[in-house]
Design a protein around this nucleic acid. Structure first.
Length: 814
RNA sequence: GCCGGCGUGGCGAAACAGGUAGACGCACUGGACUCAAAAUCCAGCGGAUGUUAAAUCCGUGUCGGUUCGACUCCGACCGCCGGCACCA
């Protein structure tokens, strides 16, 4: 029944350019939903996400905002290559046909995107500027090549960033991630660690849990770095510790197997062979196995000793794979008495345990300890520091070492640099060339884009190196500096680079001379509301903030945080709470919903079933309610016509006074709920209002048009097609979204009577209707007139009374 | 283990600056309309006791506490979900 209505208005809105972004915004609002990876078609999770955004757009539009509401496609990525391998479809064909299909679906859903601003990260006019972002990073000294142990997915046959390793497994295919020593491109996001951390405090509109996740991910830790000399050599190393107060308890030090010094020291190690064997073995173990907590810690003694600079003691140097190479210095001072990991290690290998912190009022005996004592206490066995509280010792020990030049305060972060190269075809090529004479040379800006070669010559079968490497027509080039023969970089960029700046491109999507003009970017940025899933908390949302800060620092835009407010919608699961996936066969397509029920019903259904931030167990049962509601709305209002009645409230008949009040009460609730993104209760408020009108629109009303026009506007953000239809049947010529959202009459919210609860000793015994703001005496005396109240009070003494105006009275009797 | 979040009818959920628990909807039950069904409309719908009534008692994961009054605040615990996970 609604399909004809929906088609009419969908076309009308597109034809009249309702969604077009104003060129000169006066009252700007940048509304952004995370763009989509085009894998097949839009699914129910997308539908929920984009419907939430669409409600906001329609509401803000009716409030007169000038809105930028763009959409695009995160179009590079591995699945396109997998499709190429599996189905012999080229990645570009696969991707672009998915985009066609998904865009078509979004249009059928009438989501209010300005399609003139669509961007596709896999198109050369976009990735040209992704390469430009790379060059800016390069020029800023934030890109470097490094040979180190990196995350390697054996199934995708490519390296991964830390953020793409979920509990030791690949984010895409769930394979256990391995370590490989490779030369790769890194972006120094760690240079922005402090600012990324501090910036979170400004983001008042971000959910606390996302900010906490980012804080933990950045993992700032303040401590001390202490230098140790290696006995019998001129070499030294540093350790990082947050507990310098325990330095006198150091009985050995442990190196991570990957620590570069281990290799260097091998030739002089008395236990060289054992160490070599151990290191080799450790490197073979996947991270997930090594990092399993509770696993017995193992290691090997090198035969070398280091000198504790604080007391000159010799401490054994061990290598152990419980030490992380990539955190701190890759070496720890082991204080078994006061660190649980060191304690376990010492117990296993019979290493000495020396107590240097005693709990207040008692002293520990190493021989009877069955766990490390990690709490603060009083320093002991620590030379001149004895008797000092350990919390103060932290500062004093550091100062002592600083004065003597072998220690310093140090801040360490868990955040690692961002590994951005990928050994894949379907991504933005890294714009550098390797020249034998000149080394690494960035491609000049005016030579961008470095285009991907056509897919027809490419062998996509993963072989652990980029497919581009085997294409001489791509690889062979000339050096931009010396003009001699050179080779291109065969790797492509992590797709998170593409999505780290797309919000900026939307402000100026067709600019051919620059990624975006200053004028346009500053006109729209920052994003006023960013909507998406929480799964991007420590990936995309971190890169997105980082690149915005970088481009701000380089003067390309004014703001240094991309989005002032963030909303995370919940996931859509099936009725049993399982994730919808093709392999489980439980996927519900929005297309099937709109074909069976219509867009408006599907929207109301998905918005009403659960609050937007919560996860949603999908069941089409709930759609019946939505469908009945909209049909009632249609039947109520489809035959009304005409303009607002002019009336004097006091002259209205009582029934209409009541309807007037209820209407304004509904307006207030819907308005408040939209602003708080609580669409489920907004829909409930509209249903409730409709219920108060009765089974059909009351024919005794003297203000039918007044009611109808306002109610329809309340409904418009939620069921736009139906609202537009009724609006036009009421004789309007322009879109309902060009008309203002109704304001509520606050005087109408004051009811003629209020229901007051009467409690005796805190238990509800009766209710009574009284005029609003009645005083306490009046309420009590009216209450005592009631038989059911009198029976509780008779023969007793009223000890106390608590009166909450217009709500309740509690009479305490004894 | 640490950090978040959440536990409310048969189901999805409302209400929390402490103040009538269960709005709104689904399902269900009864009734009206109908030859009948569907649709629609009306009524009921947390549990227990109860002469189907009146009424009373119990109820927001569990156990305690604060309070005239607790789903809401505090303490301990149990369960589920998400994030981090040997970070020195």
């Amino acid at each position: 029944m609604f399909s004809e209505i929906e088609a009419r208005w969908r076309e009308y809105w597109e034809k009249t350019g309702l969604y077009r972004t104003p060129d000169e915004p006066k009252n700007k609002f940048y509304l952004l939903e995370m763009f989509a990876y085009p894998s097949g078609d839009i699914h129910l999770g997308h539908f929920r996400n984009y419907t939430i955004g669409d409600v906001i757009w329609r509401y803000r539009k009716m409030q007169g905002y000038d809105i930028l509401h763009p959409f695009g496609w995160d179009a590079f990525g591995l699945p396109a290559e997998q499709a190429a391998i599996k189905h012999k479809i080229p990645p570009d064909k696969w991707t672009f046909s998915n985009i066609e299909r998904s865009r078509d679906t979004l249009r059928r859903l009438s989501i209010s995107y300005d399609w003139d601003r669509e961007i596709i990260t896999a198109s050369p006019d976009y990735y040209r500027w992704t390469q430009w972002v790379f060059l800016k990073l390069y020029e800023s000294g934030l890109v470097y090549r490094d040979t180190s142990f990196v995350n390697w997915c054996p199934s995708c046959k490519t390296v991964l960033a830390n953020e793409q390793v979920i509990a030791g497994r690949c984010w895409r295919c769930d394979s256990v991630v391995e370590k490989r020593r490779l030369e790769q491109w890194f972006v120094r996001i760690t240079a922005y660690a402090e600012r990324l951390l501090k910036g979170l405090d400004k983001l008042k509109g971000w959910p606390e849990n996302i900010k906490t996740m980012q804080r933990n991910w950045i993992g700032k830790s303040e401590g001390t770095e202490i230098d140790f000399k290696i006995e019998g050599t001129d070499k030294s190393f540093s350790v990082f510790t947050t507990r310098p107060d325990t330095i006198f308890g150091t009985t050995f030090v442990t190196f991570a197997p990957e620590q570069p010094l281990v290799d260097e020291l091998l030739p002089i190690m008395p236990n060289r062979e054992e160490v070599e064997k151990y290191v080799q073995q450790a490197l073979l173990k996947p991270e997930i196995e090594r990092s399993f907590e509770g696993r017995e810690k193992d290691g090997v003694f090198t035969g070398l000793y280091a000198i504790n600079p604080y007391n000159g003691e010799r401490v054994a140097i061990w290598v152990g794979d419980y030490v992380l190479a990539s955190y701190g210095t890759g070496v720890v001072m082991a204080v078994p008495a006061h660190d649980q990991r060191d304690f376990e290690f010492a117990k296993r290998y019979g290493l000495p345990i020396k107590v240097v912190i005693n709990p207040p009022g008692c002293s520990l005996d190493p021989s009877t300890m069955d766990a490390a004592y990690t709490e603060p206490g009083i320093m002991t066995n620590s030379g001149t520091f004895d008797g000092l509280p350990s919390t103060e010792g932290i500062r004093r020990v550091t100062e002592y070492g600083e004065e003597r030049g072998f220690a310093r305060s140090k801040v360490t972060y868990k955040l690692r640099d961002w590994l951005i190269s990928r050994q894949r075809y379907w991504g933005a090529p890294i714009p550098v060339v390797h020249c034998e004479k000149c080394g690494i040379v960035p491609v000049p800006e005016d030579a961008l884009p470095v285009l991907l070669p056509p897919a027809d010559k490419v062998n996509f079968a993963p072989r652990g190196r980029s497919p581009l490497e085997d294409l001489p027509e791509f690889m062979d080039t000339t050096c931009p500096v010396c003009g001699g023969a050179a080779r291109r970089d065969p790797d492509t960029m992590d797709t998170f680079v593409c999505s780290s700046w797309y919000h900026l491109r939307y402000t100026d999507p067709k600019n051919e001379g620059e990624p975006f003009s200053k004028r346009n970017v500053n006109r729209w940025m920052p994003v006023d509301l960013y909507i998406g899933g929480a799964e991007h908390a420590t990936g995309h949302l971190l890169y997105f903030r980082f690149i915005t800060k970088l481009l701000h620092d380089l003067g390309y835009l004014d703001v240094d945080e991309p989005a002032i407010a963030l909303f995370n919608h919940g996931m859509v699961l099936d009725a049993n709470g399982a994730v919808m996936s093709k392999s489980k066969g439980n996927v519900v397509s929005p297309v099937e919903l709109i074909e069976n029920y219509g867009v408006d019903v599907a929207r109301i259904g998905i918005l009403f079933i659960a609050p937007p931030e919560r996860e949603l167990l999908w069941s089409s049962e709930g759609l019946k309610g939505a469908s009945r509601f909209l049909e009632r709305v249609h039947n109520f209002f489809c035959n009304l016509s005409g303009n607002d009645e002019i009336f004097d409230f006091d002259q209205l008949p009582d029934v209409d006074k009541l309807r007037y009040r209820k209407l304004h009460w509904a307006i207030k609730r819907v308005k408040d709920d939209i602003e708080n993104i609580q669409f489920n209760t907004a829909v409930a408020a509209m249903m409730e209002f409709l219920n108060t009108l009765g089974p059909r629109f009351p024919d005794d009303s003297s203000i039918p048009n007044y009611i109808a026009r306002r109610f329809i506007k309340l409904l418009a953000p939620f069921a736009p097609h139906l609202a537009e239809e009724i609006w036009h049947r009421m004789g309007e010529k322009d879109s309902i979204f060009l008309s203002p959202f109704p304001d509520f009459d606050s005087t109408a919210l004051v009811a003629e009577t209020v229901t007051i609860a009467i409690q005796i000793n805190g238990k509800l015994r009766a209710t009574i209707d009284l005029p609003p703001d009645s005083d306490e005496e009046m309420v009590v005396s009216s209450a005592l007139e009631l038989d059911k109240i009198r029976k509780y009070v008779e023969g007793k003494r009223i000890v106390k009374r608590f009166y909450v105006k217009n709500k309740l009275i509690n009479i305490v009797v004894k």
